[in-house]
Design a protein around this nucleic acid. Structure first.
Ligand SMILES: NC(=O)c1ccc[n+]([C@@H]2O[C@H](COP(=O)([O-])OP(=O)(O)OC[C@H]3O[C@@H](n4cnc5c(N)ncnc54)[C@H](O)[C@@H]3O)[C@@H](O)[C@H]2O)c1
Ligand SMILES: NC(=O)c1ccc[n+]([C@@H]2O[C@H](COP(=O)([O-])OP(=O)(O)OC[C@H]3O[C@@H](n4cnc5c(N)ncnc54)[C@H](O)[C@@H]3O)[C@@H](O)[C@H]2O)c1
Lengths: 230, 230
DNA sequence: AGGCGCTTGTGAAGGGGTGCACAAATCGCG
DNA sequence: CGCGATTTGTGCACCCCTTCACAAGCGCCT
């Protein structure tokens, strides 16, 4: 389930406040989901709750971390140390969530050798060696879209089977390799769609509808994420 | 539909190569989806295809951009010009996709006045004035999680009804306000889950299963995104 | 003008996620 | 020891998305 990481973050937050147990409703609120959904999700990994009491925070953290494969600190290779790559390399939020940025790679000779956060940028050609030395488990692509497919091929060639892609393009990879994409422009466009839809809906009853703005109202706003009412 | 932006990007790419028309299958491949799904999606916004020929690229681009509300270039306010904020502010991919970063805001006095990409960082207190001056339509939060809720409240207060949140926390906003979240650690954790699952599945037939690794195999890998086979 | 091939648009079937509502189980208290 | 309050785990119904498959429509070639 893609919601487990969300639960995990909420659980860590609760643990810091001192909670030892949480009810499904409490955790559901903290994670922003339905309590029934949360219980069903957790039941998929076993019965780790106590009826009448709730869930043991520490136990649940361990269980989720195990299921997510975070018992071992996974090594991440970041390819493309440009604008975005610098921000990612300097981010400490990965280390605190079970990951270790083990390598920074770039094709630009002028960038090679640069030191960021205690890590030296190495040339992409060294990827095969770095991959085995650091036992890379996840590759992050932060190169321009034109280079993304080539980089993905190189990552796959050295045995990486999980890729996080920031370039706005679709990657073609062999079966068995997982790719997740993060495209910020798409996120903004989805928000723009909702803005347009909201504007149309409020304008319609007043103006009677201009026939131009009537169209978006007929589209279901089926997103991956939903608005959170208060 | 959350896939429309993906189609739009693929269409732009096809237009640059010189294609005037595309078949549903061609566009589906470029966007990485099923052709039937694509046809059904497009049918929701009207019949803009010609049987036996395909879709007119230019016409389809216009239609999708209209539905997404991209006919007007939306103004974006970026709050939190730190590590990540700098990368976002310097990114040219927003401008080419229908958005305009209209304001950079931060609470840190030492950051105020800094110039990035021709834009001056202003203090967060100026948000009310900036919002009306630039007619801000979307707010982007790139502050630490501890400040995210406060920033969201300020954005809502000045009339922003769409927020893109990079801070790893759930935001509580009034009904009618849309929030989308991007959490990179969660993306990595989902990849880690798949790594763990793959490792378990390949180990099981060989070793007979260690009962410890058997658990994740029973979890459906139900993600927002799916692996792309070749 | 007519036929043929290609592509769209859609009906129907299937699958899966979601949320309600409730039984079972546990703890605390009298 | 028993009872009530509380909370988990889950059966079930509903709904939406996905996908197959096919008829209808369009252009082109003869
Ligand atoms: N900057 C952002 O905020 C942002 C936001 C969303 C998406 N993106 C996307 O992220 C990607 C990177 O953006 P950026 O702003 O950092 O671009 P950038 O040009 O600043 O950095 C790209 C880096 O990749 C390196 N590179 C190019 N080809 C390479 C190759 N074959 N192997 C290894 N390294 C290679 C370049 O040397 C450069 O250092 C782009 O696809 C962009 O669309 C960036
Ligand atoms: N850097 C990354 O690559 C990255 C990746 C994923 C997520 N994030 C998340 O993005 C957020 C920002 O990350 P960062 O690395 O840029 O942090 P950062 O500390 O470098 O930058 C945060 C900025 O926000 C400003 N700020 C703090 N409180 C504010 C307020 N109330 N109003 C306006 N501005 C305020 C600070 O002055 C600072 O400039 C964090 O929540 C982080 O978890 C960052």
């Amino acid at each position: 389930m893609a919601r487990l990481p969300e639960y995990l973050r909420a659980l860590h937050a609760l643990a810091e406040v001192g909670h030892e147990t949480v009810s499904s409703e409490g955790l559901a609120n903290a994670a922003g989901v339905n309590s029934a959904k949360l219980r069903k999700d957790l039941s998929h990994l076993g019965s780790y709750g106590t009826r009448g009491v709730g869930y043991d925070v520490g136990l649940l953290v361990d269980q989720i971390e195990f299921v997510l494969g975070l018992t071992q600190r996974r090594a991440v290779a970041l390819v493309g140390v440009g604008n975005l790559g610098h921000a990612l390399a300097g981010y400490d939020g990965f280390a605190s969530r079970g990951f270790r940025i083990a390598a920074l790679l770039d094709a630009e000779p002028s960038r090679v050798g640069e030191q960021i956060n205690g890590l030296v940028v190495r040339h992409i050609d060294e990827l095969p060696r770095v991959a085995v030395e650091e036992s890379i488990s996840i590759g992050v692509i932060a190169t321009p879209a034109s280079a993304a497919q080539a980089v993905a091929d190189q990552l796959v060639a050295v045995g990486v089977t999980s890729i996080l892609n920031f370039a706005p393009c679709v990657l073609s990879v062999p079966e068995g390799v997982d790719v997740r994409k993060v495209d910020l422009a798409i996120e903004l466009q989805i928000l723009s769609f909702h803005e347009h839809r909201k504007a149309s809906l409020t304008a319609l009853p007043a103006t009677g509808g201009s026939a131009l703005t009537a169209l978006p109202g007929g589209l279901a706003a089926t997103d991956t994420q939903e608005a959170i009412g208060t």
